Simulated scan of single mutants.
Amino acid sequence: MPRNILALDFYGSTITAALAAVDDDTRTLRIRHVLRRTCRSFSGAFVRDMAGAEEGLNKVFAEMNEYINADPSVVVGLRGNFLSFKSSSGFKSIDTRNRIIGDREIDEAIRNSVPINLSDTLEVVDILPQSYMIDGNTGILDPKGMAGFTLEIGTFLSYALVTHLNNLNNVLSACNCPEYALLPSSVALGETLLTEGEKRSGALLLDLGEESVSALLYNKGILLDGLELPYGLNRRAEAVADLLQNDVETAQEVLNGYEPGADEIMDEVIEDAESKMLQGINKEILQAFCLHLKYPAPNLILCGSGSTKQMVKTAKAIFNAKKARLGVVDHLISDCPADNPAYTGALSLIRHTLEREQNQLGVAQTKESGLFTGFLDKLGQLFEH
């Protein structure tokens, strides 16, 4: 019998969600329903107002209720500048008699990659293994079952501020959702949308939303660094306002009602505004990734609700990339229109979660292991009201 997975992605002041049915026997994934709901009590995964955030999430759960026939697994995507990232490594001496590496040794090496002097203000939300080395020998794809004296694992760590994370946890708990996995949305996007060739040759992933930007940098097949910026297409509106000498609200109204190609002059204004916005993003990325980004990444992948085909050419020139493209989650079996770029994050969370589950890869933070006690009951109560 298929099982359900529900992904929640907090995109600025909008909650996006995707519900999928997974058949483990045939390894097929069917998207049952997707939704977008404005909730200004959230800014990314940062809670601005507890009561409003709970109300917004309950409405999302209520809409999903008619598509759920059993308790779902839930994966929550984190976005926002309360996230930080770091490449690390973990070491484990193999102390079993026959020196064979198993799950226990791999798990210990992964967990040993977390710094022991980690600040009390931070909490690890995800540990992504990336490389393995046995007795100094590199290039190992899977160490399980191999013999050796020492195991070293290269990892990519994602942290979140404890206070912000606790607020999100309290809202989810109040919505009768006690069990869920937490993952950075950007990591799910990078691991889902980029090809292995792009990761090896070097790639910059840019996820552009209305109020936020997420960036990931890959080189030689390794995820090197990540960045969360607290602005996005809202900077484009500011640039349009400056060019038209209007206020930002008027400029946003013009953008909301504008169709590309309808007015040649406005096309040029918007292109100039997008160029200014992307130049600002590029400046932040060059500063944040200065230790890793000695040369421009040859591949640029744009995704998110703010990314368009028209923007790819401009971004390619600004980021000095050899190739640029839009990143989409393809090969989907879907019962609903799920091709809107705004749903890419939620769909990537589902894909990435299943891949890690299948490969038994890494450690994502999980809250309250067990059943979703009362989840469907709460949804039923919502519809009664």
Rank of each mutant, 00 (worst) to 15 (best):
T314M: 01
Y231D: 03
L227R: 14
A324N: 01
Q245A: 12
K220H: 13
V328W: 00
L233D: 06
D330K: 08
L291R: 12
K313W: 03
E284H: 12
L300V: 03
V312G: 01
Q287F: 15
L216I: 10
A237N: 11
G232R: 04
P296Y: 10
V248W: 04
L224F: 14
V328F: 06
S275G: 15
T314D: 05
A262Y: 08
A273T: 07
Q287A: 14
K316I: 07
R235W: 08
L217N: 00
K309L: 11
G226A: 12
L278Y: 06
R325M: 04
E253Q: 11
I270V: 14
L326F: 06
H292P: 00
V240M: 08
S275Y: 09
C303L: 09
A239H: 07
D225A: 15
R236A: 15
N246L: 14
G304F: 00
D263V: 08
P230E: 07
K294G: 04
K283F: 14
G304H: 02
Y231R: 10
P260K: 02
A288G: 02
A239E: 12
S307P: 05
D225H: 14
C303P: 02
C290L: 06
S305D: 06
R236N: 05
G304A: 05
A297F: 13
I318E: 11
H331F: 02
I281V: 15
Q279D: 14
H331K: 12
T250F: 13
Y231Q: 04
V240E: 09
A324H: 05
Q310T: 10
H331Q: 15
V328P: 00
R325P: 04
E259N: 09
E249P: 01
L244K: 15
E274D: 15
D263P: 09
D247P: 11
R325E: 03
V329K: 00
S275K: 09
E271I: 09
R236F: 00
A288Y: 14
M277C: 11
K283E: 15
P230Y: 12
I285E: 07
R325F: 08
L326S: 06
V240C: 10
N234F: 09
C303Q: 03
P260H: 01
V269S: 09
K283S: 13
V269A: 12
I301K: 03
I270Y: 02
R235P: 01
A297W: 13
V248G: 02
G280E: 13
N234E: 05
Q310D: 13
K309V: 02
L302F: 02
G232N: 05
Q310W: 00
D330P: 00
R325S: 05
D330G: 12
R325H: 07
G304R: 04
G280N: 12
Q252L: 08
M277Q: 11
F319Q: 07
Q287W: 13
P260M: 01
N320F: 01
N299H: 15
F319P: 02
T250A: 14
D272G: 01
A297T: 01
I265A: 13
F289C: 01
M266W: 04
Q252A: 06
I270N: 04
R235I: 02
K316Y: 05
V329H: 01
